[in-house]
């Protein structure tokens, strides 16, 4: 697992209070991990904070699974 994926997973576990083995690439924040719409806003803020990037609202809307977040942040931090 990449460094980005590890860090994303840690944030998701902390913010949503879920077991780490549930935080897989295909896990949907709302449908699989029990997040509500406010939780997802806060998750995106936590990603921004951790990775020092800005995630615009239209990009944030496309991040619905753990894998989406990892992919977006790997790209954003590689640039």
């Amino acid at each position: 697992m990449s460094d980005v994926a590890e860090r994303v997973k840690k944030i998701v576990v902390e913010h949503l209070g879920v077991e780490s083995d549930k935080v897989v690439d295909s896990a949907n924040f709302i449908e699989d991990l029990g997040a509500d719409s406010l939780d997802t806003v806060e998750l995106v803020m936590a990603f921004e904070e951790e990775f020092g990037v800005e995630i615009p609202d239209d990009a944030a809307e496309t991040i619905v699974t753990v894998g989406d977040a990892v992919k977006f942040l790997e790209k954003a931090t590689a640039a």
Partner: peptide, 10 residues
């Protein structure tokens, strides 16, 4: 303002 939590008000 981008750092203000969505849970701040509620």
């Amino acid at each position: 303002p981008r750092r203000v939590s969505p849970f701040f008000i509620p």
